[in-house]
Amino acid sequence: MEIGTAADWATFAATTFAVIAAGAALYYSHRANALSREIYREDVRVRNEAQARLVYARKQREIIYRKGQEIVADNDATMSETRGGLLGTTNETQSPGATRALEDLMVVEVVIHNDSKEVIGPFQVRLHDVIAGEPLTTSYGTEVVLAGKTSDPIQFAVPRFDGNYVPDISFRDSAGLCWSRRGYEPIQVLDEQRRRFFAELAGLQRFRG
């Protein structure tokens, strides 16, 4: 049996080493490319979320009103009823045109903050009932654009006062990406149905701020 010369063995060893080295280089090249793609995707995600992280809605206060009591108006805030028949106006001599509670209710004041430098809009704000585990159907702001570095107060009239509410905001950022946030929870990407909803509203926008 021929074992071969030292030169043959040296050639075989060199060839084997070259194959192993080439395989290792290819493996690490693929790993490097995959890592680069992962870093790029993470960088895109961070940049995409940069504005959305600066948009939030917070509950400022809750005011309880008994039936017939006059509602203290905040001229800067928009009032929304979570269902009809909660508020009405009066023709009384002392305070004509005053808004009064038609039943026992609570006014929840929410402030939307856009701390970014860019506009957001359209946006939609509604109250989420923590106890019931679902949002109230009435919302505000679907056709509104909010300027950067501004805030917008909204008041919601809700029946009774046994709920625990947190604001739930959905909005489109200046890059056209759609997000949602409940209270101070992390931002979430809107699903396709909600994105289409915001796309349809884009032509109806009004400006706030």
Results as ranks from 00 to 15, higher is better:
59 K>T: 06
113 H>G: 05
47 R>E: 08
53 R>Y: 09
53 R>C: 12
85 G>C: 05
128 H>Y: 14
78 T>A: 13
45 R>Q: 14
5 T>D: 09
157 A>W: 09
177 L>G: 02
115 D>V: 09
91 N>L: 09
19 V>A: 15
43 D>C: 03
85 G>E: 07
79 M>T: 13
176 G>D: 14
31 R>E: 12
180 S>D: 00
135 P>W: 13
203 G>R: 05
201 L>V: 03
68 G>W: 12
136 L>F: 13
10 A>E: 15
181 R>S: 03
5 T>H: 08
182 R>W: 00
78 T>F: 12
198 F>T: 02
178 C>Y: 02
197 F>A: 14
66 R>P: 03
126 R>T: 03
55 V>E: 03
82 T>I: 09
207 F>I: 10
146 L>N: 01
88 G>T: 11
88 G>R: 10
125 V>K: 01
113 H>Q: 10
69 Q>H: 12
189 V>W: 05
35 L>V: 06
63 I>A: 11
53 R>N: 15
112 I>Q: 03
165 Y>I: 01
9 W>Q: 12
33 N>P: 05
175 A>T: 05
175 A>K: 10
163 G>T: 02
90 T>V: 10
12 F>L: 11
201 L>H: 09
65 Y>N: 08
206 R>W: 08
162 D>F: 04
123 F>N: 07
11 T>Y: 14
192 E>P: 00
205 Q>I: 05
47 R>I: 01
54 L>P: 03
195 R>Y: 03
155 Q>W: 02
208 R>K: 10
33 N>L: 14
22 A>Q: 10
141 G>V: 02
119 V>S: 05
50 A>R: 15
179 W>R: 06
122 P>M: 06
103 E>C: 02
61 R>N: 11
140 Y>Q: 14
80 S>F: 15
142 T>H: 09
76 D>M: 13
18 A>Q: 07
206 R>D: 09
187 I>Y: 00
14 A>D: 11
154 I>Y: 01
1 M>C: 06
142 T>N: 12
64 I>A: 06
146 L>T: 07
30 H>A: 14
201 L>Y: 04
120 I>T: 01
